[in-house]
């Protein structure tokens, strides 16, 4: 296949398609030298902690000495953790999934407007999307707590209209999903915007010229062109949202909306002797997300992302 392309490229007199080979051997070691700092960084801050986390997840507790452990290969930690907190896992995936879908539903029209309709307002909109990052994540989430509070404008209005069963927004899953959606929205908007902005508007015109109405053009041309951005955006939203605990902590209830991140947090920092459980949950979450993401990328992925 490659040779066929190369041959036809030569035939067509297009030198760009034939790969340059000169000087390849002598510069062979350069890429590795350049990789070195990154590799060191990864080893120090990713591989080593990961191994440590893995070994912590298999430790056993000294009998009668809570908070003290010895090295072991205690697979039961995983069974215990998953049977006790499986529901939190499912909840995390469900919340993250909902937030991702909502983010997409909000981000795509926004990114589309920015890329094709905003004209000179494009940069202003871009700044507005990024501006919230200038305030801390925690502060913004606390601000949402005020906005959604029972005495806040939204809950009051909805209550007055009898549209809020239960009477609260905070302390419910709705608040947690809303918080996740809000906090991760820019991570969806920016990659989709980038891929739409790179798309040639002539392609959308070509779609309409070839008998596709607006909706069909959207489905058959615009969305496929934005696919790399959509893929990146969903990953950038789903992965951190699934591991998030701040939104559930600040906007959710103490019991019914806890996500796996909250469990890990409390096992690590508040429960005496929770280390192996927390580590086992962390590793499980990582593996689960990895499997889901790999499946997703294999299904929808393009070369540009992988």
């Amino acid at each position: 296949m490659t040779t066929a392309i190369a041959a036809s490229a030569r035939e067509a007199g297009d030198p760009q398609l034939t790969p340059p080979r000169r000087g390849g051997r002598r510069r062979g070691w350069m890429p590795y030298v350049l990789l070195l700092p990154g590799l060191l960084w990864l080893t120090l801050f990713f591989i080593v902690p990961l191994v440590q986390l893995g070994s912590a997840s298999l430790q056993s507790q000294w009998p009668g000495a809570p908070g003290y452990y010895y090295r072991d290969v205690n697979g039961a930690n995983y069974l215990d953790a998953l049977s006790a907190y499986g529901v939190h896992f499912l909840r995390s995936l469900a919340f993250a999934g909902m937030a991702t879908v909502l983010c997409f539903a909000i981000a795509f029209p926004l990114a589309y407007a920015m890329a094709f309709k905003a004209g000179r307002w494009r940069n202003v909109m871009l700044i507005l999307v990024v501006a919230p990052f200038f305030t801390s994540f925690i502060l913004r989430t606390i601000a949402w707590r005020q906005i959604l509070a029972d005495e806040g404008p939204l809950a009051r209005t909805l209550n007055a209209l009898h549209l809020l069963p239960g009477g609260h927004i905070t302390e419910t899953w709705v608040a947690v999903v809303a918080g996740l959606t809000y906090n991760f929205l820019p991570f969806m908007v920016l990659p989709i915007y980038t891929s739409l902005e790179r798309a040639d508007p002539r392609l959308l015109e070509a779609g309409r010229d070839l008998y596709a109405d607006r909706l069909t053009t959207l489905r058959t041309v615009t969305i496929p062109l934005a696919a790399p951005g959509i893929l990146a955006g969903t990953l950038l939203t789903f992965i951190p949202a699934a591991g998030d605990y701040v939104n559930a902590e600040l906007l959710g209830s103490d019991t019914s909306t806890k996500m796996v991140g909250n469990v890990i947090n409390s096992q690590f920092f508040t429960v005496l002797g929770g280390y192996p459980t927390a580590a086992a949950l962390s590793i499980s979450l990582m593996v689960l997300i990895l499997v889901l993401v790999l499946g997703y990328v294999r299904r929808f992925g393009t070369e540009e992302v992988l």
Binding site: D200, R202, L203, E205, A206, G207, R208, D209, L210, Y211, A212, D213, V221, P224
Partner: peptide
């Protein structure tokens, strides 16, 4: 455009 029996070969080709 999709309601017209007209097709265009674009200056930049605009292939999908």
């Amino acid at each position: 455009p999709h309601e017209r029996p007209v097709n265009t070969v674009f200056q930049s080709y605009a292939l999908f």
